[in-house]
């Protein structure tokens, strides 16, 4: 395939005498070998390997945290007398009126939402038709949803479950009679 001249030219590439001296001199001076064995790169590799494990661990931990799901009350102009700040927060709604709970679910994975009472709809202002009223919704990633409880006073304790992969979180919505307000609380 290649002519003789090209092969001859290739074969004329040879290792230098200095390389020979370097290799053969090292072959007789094992005492110069550094720690971690005989090869200076070996020690570096051990560190690199340890570093790789650490990076892997961090990646796994961060992936785990990415899989987490959070649920927030949306601030999108709806009356929201109390802020939902986490474990326990109130939302003043008349118990006898339908409760609309505007929520935002943040997740990087596919999720499934189930409610025990009422129904959920995807909150989409551009939607021309009424969205279907469902007890269960499959969503991909972060979404805004509205959870409707037809008659707040009769709903009792309602729960919303969010499932992603093997992870499941549950929030409970109930009416606080003493303080006359709805509470949305994350179940432990």
């Amino acid at each position: 395939m290649f002519d003789k001249n090209t092969i001859k030219t290739y074969r004329s590439i040879t290792a230098s005498d200095s390389l020979k001296r370097r290799v053969l001199s090292q072959s007789t001076t094992e005492g110069t070998r550094p720690i971690f064995g005989m090869n200076p790169l070996r020690g570096q590799r051990k560190f690199a390997l340890a570093g790789s494990f650490l990076v892997l661990l961090l990646v796994i931990l961060s992936l785990n945290s990415l899989q987490s799901v959070s649920l927030h009350l949306r601030d999108d102009g709806r009356p929201s007398p109390a802020n939902f700040t986490g474990e326990k927060a109130g939302r003043s709604i008349d118990a006898n009126m339908p409760a609309v709970v505007p929520l935002e679910i943040k997740s990087r994975r596919d999720i499934r939402v189930n409610v025990s009472s009422g129904y959920v709809v995807i909150a989409d202002d551009d939607m021309e038709e009424d969205p279907p009223k469902l007890k269960s919704l499959s969503l991909s990633g972060s979404k805004k949803i509205d959870w409707y409880i037809e008659n707040g006073g009769e709903a009792g304790n309602a729960t919303i479950d969010i499932t992603t992969g093997k992870k499941r979180i549950s929030y409970e919505l109930f009416y606080d009679v003493e303080n006359h307000q709805w509470i949305l609380k994350k179940n432990k």
Binding site: R11, I13, T14, A15, S16, L19, R22, Q26, N39
Partner: peptide, 28 residues
């Protein structure tokens, strides 16, 4: 050595690095 140097040079296109590669191979 010559063959390994040629292979190394063709991969790295650097005399210095090819020599380092061959040196390392013989150390191994």
């Amino acid at each position: 050595a010559d063959m390994l140097f040629r292979i190394s040079y063709s991969a790295l296109l650097s005399k210095e690095d090819a020599e380092d590669a061959v040196h390392e191979v013989f150390m191994k």
